[in-house]
Design a protein around this nucleic acid. Structure first.
Lengths: 218, 218
DNA sequence: ACCCATTATATTGGATACAATAGCCAATAT
DNA sequence: ATATTGGCTATTGTATCCAATATAATGGGT
């Protein structure tokens, strides 16, 4: 395993990000016991930022932290993934409903641009980034810090690499994004939230199906 | 014979609880700047547990924590309260739906007992406690750690003292509890979730009304 | 007197040092 | 041979210390 510190940010945040990715990538495997001192040494920092990071990761559901025992990487079962998508569906459609009344025309333009770019892109890495920005902007009008907080907490618990995993994910997503964008343009919050629900739920179903198939073939 | 340790509390947890209550009670007022060293001295601990506690409270939305600046107690506007109840409605009804298939008959009995006690109680403090236990048990069948985590995070952000604030809250709640309990007894998850939604939403509406009235008369 | 730059102070961020605890292993007794 | 205990070790929890940063205070120039 090779962990490396990113450049200057507030230390615990960088540590959190690195550890989170290490877990999602599988470098830190489920069941593995995380020793603060070891992580600290590998990252070239003291135990303190590591402790804070572990606490954050616990809240995100990636690890379990027991007093005087330490941190263990949680296993991500298919049920867990299902659950995460269920919560994402609820939270993000709520957020979109709250967001739309406050979305500026500029935000809409930006989304339109991203949508066009996505329809032109077959680089998965770029697509994932564009997609992230698309959804971020769409929810940016939601004023509720709590909703954003919950979404972050839920979303961080899972990798956002569906285009690599689900066959045809990009094409399907593009179609769904188009419908969502149209509803938002018409300022039809209910319909937009509904279509977003479908989008996330469809992704969930596809993902679960693929994962179950993978599980069979092992 | 069965002996049990009085849950060995780890310092940051105790500190978190104390600070949380101080904020909800208003002893630490909105806008107030929280200095780690001061709190540590008042509590007779070092700054370290305080730092961890502050981080937890930030996640619960009670304070804002900015790098190198410190902690400020958040203001709880009526809109915030509205938002918290909206999230509680979503999350708790989801949790109840997931809980019911796994609720044991013993749990149901316990709820029945608590319900009877509540109908006999006019001590508000006792009522709040019984009510808390009633709802806790009803959701105890929900296996999803994530849902529980989100509920905790949302609920901690607000005082649970509605019987002191809303006129007739106890009587209304008792009626609603009865309906919920019946639905649960029939293992009708959808109906139970629906009735719980109504219960929380009714409380929200009453609470907001009272708070707005209070605001007028000032 | 006012404004900007500079220094001083307060407070947080991070590292190190020390204490408490859990889990393991061997030694002993039954 | 097994169960129990006592101590050892690994690891976490807490305190203290030093460094980095932001804010307040100061002072000189205009």
């Amino acid at each position: 395993m090779k962990l490396e510190m990113a450049q200057r940010e507030v230390l615990p945040n960088s540590v959190t990000t690195i550890l989170r990715q290490a877990i999602l990538k599988g470098d830190l495997a489920p069941g593995q016991h995380l020793v603060q001192a070891d992580l600290a040494e590998q990252l070239g920092v003291s135990r303190m930022p590591v402790r804070e990071a572990l606490k954050t990761l616990e809240m995100e559901g990636l690890i379990t932290l027991e007093p005087h025992k330490g941190a263990v990487v949680n296993e991500l079962t298919i049920d867990d993934i299902d659950e995460i998508y269920e919560l994402r569906t609820m939270l993000e459609s709520l957020a979109l409903r709250k967001s739309i009344p406050h979305l500026t025309d500029e935000a809409l333009d930006e989304m339109q641009k991203l949508h066009l770019k996505m329809m032109d892109t077959f680089e998965k890495e770029e697509y994932v980034d564009l997609n992230r920005r698309f959804h971020t902007i769409s929810l940016s009008g939601c004023r509720s810090k709590r909703v954003h907080g919950l979404m972050a907490r839920v979303s961080h618990g899972i990798a956002k690499d569906t285009p690599y995993v689900i066959p045809g994910q990009i094409e399907k997503s593009n179609r769904e994004h188009g419908v969502i964008l149209e509803a938002i343009s018409n300022r039809d919050a209910e319909r937009a939230a509904d279509e977003l629900s479908h989008h996330i739920n469809r992704t969930r179903e596809d993902l679960i199906e693929v994962l179950k198939a993978q599980k069979e073939n092992r």
